Each structure stands twice: as structure tokens, then as C-alpha cells.
Amino acid sequence: MTAPTRTERGLHQEQRAQVAALHGELVRYALVTWTAGNVSERVPGEDLFVIKGSGVSYDGLSWEGITVCDLDGTVVDGVRRPSSDTAAHAYVYRHLPAVNGVVHTHSPYATAWSARGEAIPCVLTAMADEFGGPIPVGPFALIGDDSIGQGIVATLAGQRSPAVLMRNHGVFTIGDSARSAVKAAVMCEDVARTVHLARQLGEPLPIAQADIDSLYERYQNVYGQR
């Protein structure tokens, strides 16, 4: 990843504005603190993605706080240095062509599970619906290169979960759009909290795999407006 070009041509301004607005959902659902966390989205039809600038405040975040990068993480347009997680996002986009959105948070309950290096077991119908099983734990990796991205891709291989808990770090979620990745981050924190509370009362009851499969199929293909 290279330094910003410090040029602002306003490339993909509308998409950058939409991604900027989605960061408000991270604040709304208390998934981030101060300037931590980020949302990115692939630019349709181009080998580019847009991502929040490093250390940029959520207050009044506009399209100018979102930087355009290529799939190597090199800045293409924007005056903000991109997120320190840019290399991880770029790795995911390079290796998972169906992924169009990536979100990173340090949401408290889910990150507490990551600090224990423990997957969140699938003991709620809402988990079966959204994640199709447990939320897995990825390996510990330092920030700065694509090591985190490698861990995300390797951990989610063969999984239905759009979320991974990177050990001692936090949550990464993927989706077919930035909005769907944000939804997965919101749901991840919600179930992490509920399962944690359940464990204070005793051992949560497991859901049979056949029922998990049935719930996942219904939610993904029948639930909601089509």
C-alpha cells in the first residue's frame, strides 16, 4: 500500500457518500468507539474499492473522508490516508470475488469472545438464520499488512458465516454489499451479547444441525420481501 496521491478528482463520489453514511449505523448500534472501525465496498465493474480514511472522525463523515483504492490497496483518489486495515480489505476482495462489502468493528461483546479465542456457538435461531452455524475464530495477526485478510479468507472458507472473530482483535464481516456486511456486524454483536448472557445462567442448549440448516434455508430464501 502506497501513500495517498493527495489528488481529489471526486471519483465514485456517490458511492463514497453512501459508504460514509453507512458508518453512522456502526455508531447507532454502538459497534465502534472514537475513530476505530471501518466500512469498505467494492466499486462495481472495476478493480477498486472505497474505504474510510485512517483516524477520520465519524462526526460529519462525508464522501471526502472515504478514499478510493485499487485491489492492492494503493490509493487511486482521495486526500485521506486510507484505513490501517486497507491491506486486509484488499486481500479479501482479491480472493473472494463474490464479496462486495467488508466491515471491521471492535464491538464489545463479540470482541470479548475474540479475546478468549472462542467461537460463538449456534444456540439461537437468529444465529442459524443469519450465520448458518457458529461464528468462527480466526488467527491472531498484526495490523499493517495483509495477514489479517489471509486469516479472514482462510477461516471463512467452507463456512456459511459472514462474520469472523479475529483473535485478540475484533470482528470482520463480509457481504454482497457494504450494507449487508454492516447488517452482519450488527447481528454478530447482538448474538454475542445474548449468548454471553445465557452462559451466565448456565450452559446454552444446542440446536440440532438439521434444524440449523432448515432455519438458514428459510431465512435466506423465504424470509422478507422478494
Rank of each mutant, 00 (worst) to 15 (best):
A185N: 02
Y91D: 01
M187R: 14
V76T: 10
A119D: 05
S147M: 06
V79R: 08
Y109R: 12
D190Y: 11
V68P: 03
G101C: 13
A192D: 06
S83V: 07
P162N: 02
R193W: 05
A185P: 04
G144V: 06
S62K: 13
E130L: 04
S177I: 03
L124K: 09
P136I: 15
W113D: 05
A157H: 06
V103M: 03
V102Q: 00
V92A: 01
P108Y: 03
W113R: 10
A98K: 12
R94M: 09
G65N: 09
S180Q: 12
G78A: 12
A181V: 03
V76G: 10
I135W: 01
V153H: 12
V195D: 03
R94E: 08
S62P: 08
G138S: 15
R94S: 07
V75F: 13
V191H: 02
Y109Q: 06
Y91V: 00
T105W: 09
L201A: 14
V186W: 00
D70P: 12
G151N: 13
G132C: 09
V68L: 15
R81Y: 03
T105P: 07
V153G: 08
H196M: 11
N168Q: 14
D129P: 00
G132R: 09
L142E: 13
R167D: 02
V137W: 12
R94I: 08
D190H: 14
V137H: 09
G151L: 09
D145I: 01
D146K: 00
V171W: 11
A119C: 04
Q159H: 08
A163T: 14
A198P: 00
A178T: 00
P134R: 07
P162D: 02
I143S: 12
P97I: 13
A141F: 05
P162G: 06
I152N: 05
T86A: 04
G73H: 02
T67P: 03
T111P: 02
D85H: 13
T67V: 11
S177A: 05
D77Y: 10
G202W: 01
V137C: 15
Q200V: 04
A154R: 15
E189Y: 13
A157E: 15
A88L: 01
R160M: 10
G158D: 07
R167N: 09
E130K: 14
